[in-house]
Measured scan of single mutants.
Amino acid sequence: MFYPNSPQTSPQLTQIPYGQQYAMMQRQIQQPYHPFATTEPQARLYPYHYQGPIQQEQGGFITQQSTAASPQYVQMRVTPVDQSIMSGYPNQTANGSSSSSFNYNIHPQQQQQQQQQQQQLRHHAMPVGSVPLQDDRYRKQLIVNYLAPDVTSTDLHELFSRFGELDGARIIYDKQTNMSKGYGFVYFCHAEDAKEAVERMSGYEFHGKWLKVGYSTNPLNIVPSNSSPYVHAGSRGAAG
């Protein structure tokens, strides 16, 4: 039997160049792979992502010199942007860049009308829970959420009447099932009393439920100042 490094198959040491006398086997001759043993700084910083320098080929596509990437890492192929796409944008300079302001050559009167329309939209648009300043009635009506099913309009009136005089209180019921929808409205005579009720009743436990109280901004629920107070009856038909 002959071994790869046996004296019968191995040459004389004098015939082997210096430095390879003890590297006779194939696994010894093959050098191990060192990912950080390279002179390129990109490979030292990113050993798993770097795959060699990027070269520009004919046709405008950018390719990489090395083989496919590892399945664990996804390499994105980048193509140059066609400058003709950006030619339609206004205020574009000769080098292809555009300024931040756009001039669509709008007539001054049209621009003024658009600004007025935007101001009107901001004036009428009102986020949930906010209180408008032009109508004091919005500051007097509250919406009470997360009410228990057994709470009546009379219970709601008695709960909030300790903060001040009320114009009314009612629970909203479903017309088909005649069941409470879980929320109601309270109408105060003074805005200061309503503000105190919002601050003190939010998070209050009532009939096993934690109440959420806020201003009601729905104009359909506003009680006119010259109208008669609501009837605080315990029956659902009268309260709904």
Rank of each mutant, 00 (worst) to 15 (best):
V198M: 09
P71I: 14
P80E: 06
A43F: 14
I62G: 07
Q51D: 11
G168W: 01
S10R: 10
M86F: 08
Q110T: 12
G184E: 02
N226E: 02
T14L: 11
F163G: 08
N91A: 08
D135L: 03
D193A: 10
Y33N: 07
Y89I: 06
A94I: 10
Q109K: 11
Y146C: 00
L166M: 15
G52C: 12
K195A: 10
G240R: 11
G182D: 03
Q119W: 15
L166W: 03
I62Y: 14
Q75Y: 15
L133D: 05
Q30N: 07
H123A: 13
A148W: 02
Q109S: 10
I29A: 02
I85C: 13
D167P: 04
P17D: 10
G168N: 02
S153H: 08
S97C: 13
F36T: 09
P7M: 10
Q20F: 14
A43P: 09
I222Q: 04
G19E: 10
A239D: 05
E40G: 08
H157C: 08
Y48F: 10
L121P: 06
D193P: 10
E158Y: 13
G168E: 00
M24T: 07
Q120E: 06
Q115D: 07
L159K: 01
N145D: 00
Q30L: 15
G237T: 03
V74M: 05
V144L: 03
T14Q: 13
S6N: 12
A94C: 13
S6L: 14
K195Q: 11
P224K: 12
F163R: 05
P32T: 05
Q118C: 10
L133H: 14
F2P: 02
L220F: 01
R44F: 15
S87W: 15
I222V: 07
R236N: 06
T177A: 03
Q30S: 14
T79V: 13
A68G: 12
I54E: 04
L142D: 01
S98W: 15
I54H: 08
H232N: 13
Y48R: 05
F185Y: 00
P17Y: 14
D82R: 08
S180G: 03
H34G: 13
L142M: 07
E192K: 08
H107D: 05
R170D: 00
P219F: 01
K181Y: 01
G184I: 00
Y215R: 00
R77V: 15
R122G: 13
S216L: 00
A37F: 15
S225W: 13
P47V: 15
E165W: 13
K195I: 08
Q28F: 12
Y173T: 07
I222Y: 13
V231C: 04
P41E: 02
T38R: 05
I16P: 06
R162A: 11
Y3P: 02
Q120A: 12
P35H: 09
V223G: 04
I54K: 01
Y204T: 05
Y104V: 11
I16D: 02
S100L: 15
T39K: 01
D155A: 09
Q21W: 15
S6R: 10
G234C: 08
L142Q: 03
Q30I: 09
S202G: 06
A194M: 00
A191E: 08
Y204G: 02
D193W: 01
I62C: 14
V131L: 14
P71A: 05
E165H: 12
G164P: 06
Q26S: 09
R27T: 11
Y104A: 14
M126P: 09
Q83T: 08
Q65A: 12
H107F: 15
D136R: 02
N218H: 05
Q109Y: 13
H207G: 02
G129Y: 13
N145Q: 00
F163C: 03
Q113D: 07
V78K: 04
E196Y: 04
R44G: 09
Q58P: 08
S153W: 14
K212D: 00
P90E: 05
I171M: 02
Q114T: 06
T93N: 14
I62A: 02
P149A: 05
T152R: 06
G60R: 06
P17W: 09
Q12Y: 11
V151W: 02
Q120D: 06
Q75T: 08
A94R: 04
T152M: 09
F160H: 09
S97K: 08
A68E: 04
A37L: 10
K212S: 00
G96H: 06
P47E: 11
A37Y: 15
S101I: 08
Y104Q: 04
N226Y: 04
Q64H: 11
S6T: 11
G59F: 15
K212E: 00
T177N: 04
R44E: 08
S235D: 11
L166G: 03
F185A: 00
Y46L: 06
S202M: 09
D82P: 08
G208V: 00
I85V: 10
Y33H: 03
E199R: 08
E165D: 08
M126C: 15
A69L: 10
Q20I: 05
K175C: 05
E40P: 05
S84I: 15
H107I: 11
Q58F: 15
P71E: 08
G237S: 10
P4F: 15
P11C: 09
G237E: 01
Q110E: 13
A169K: 01
V78C: 09
Q12D: 07
D82G: 12
I143H: 00
P17T: 08
E192W: 11
I171F: 03
Q92D: 06
K181I: 01
T152Q: 09
L147D: 01
L159H: 02
T79A: 08
N105D: 07
I16G: 05
H34R: 11
K212T: 01
S70D: 07
T38D: 07
S228F: 14
H49C: 09
Q112L: 13
P53M: 08
T9W: 12
V151R: 02
S10P: 10
D82F: 15
V186G: 00
L45W: 05
Q113N: 12
Q31S: 08
D167V: 01
S235Y: 07
S99Y: 14
V151H: 08
V131C: 13
H49S: 09
Y18K: 08
P132K: 04
F206Q: 01
Q92G: 11
Q113T: 07
S228L: 09
G88C: 06
Y73I: 10
F206K: 00
R139L: 10
H207L: 01
H190N: 11
Q20D: 04
K209Q: 00
I16K: 04
V231K: 07
E199L: 08
P80C: 14
S216H: 00
F160Q: 06
A238M: 12
Q42S: 12
A94L: 13
D82L: 15
P53F: 15
S87G: 13
Q75V: 15
T38E: 04
L211G: 00
E57N: 09
C189S: 06
N218R: 02
H157Y: 08
R236F: 01
F185S: 00
K181E: 00
P127L: 09
Y138E: 02
L156N: 13
S153M: 14
H207N: 13
A239W: 02
G237I: 03
Q42F: 14
F188R: 01
L159S: 02
N95H: 12
G168A: 06
R137G: 05
Q119R: 10
P219Y: 00
I16S: 12
A194F: 03
S161Q: 06
N145W: 02
D150I: 04
G208W: 01
K212M: 01
A68K: 03
S84P: 13
P90V: 11
P47G: 12
S153Q: 07
A197I: 01
Q117H: 08
Q75M: 15
K212A: 02
D155Y: 08
F2Y: 12
F185H: 00
I29M: 11
P90G: 11
T63W: 15
G19C: 07
V223W: 02
G208I: 00
T9E: 12
Q141L: 00
Y204I: 06
H107R: 08
V78T: 07
Q55D: 07
F2C: 03
D167L: 02
G237P: 04
Q110F: 10
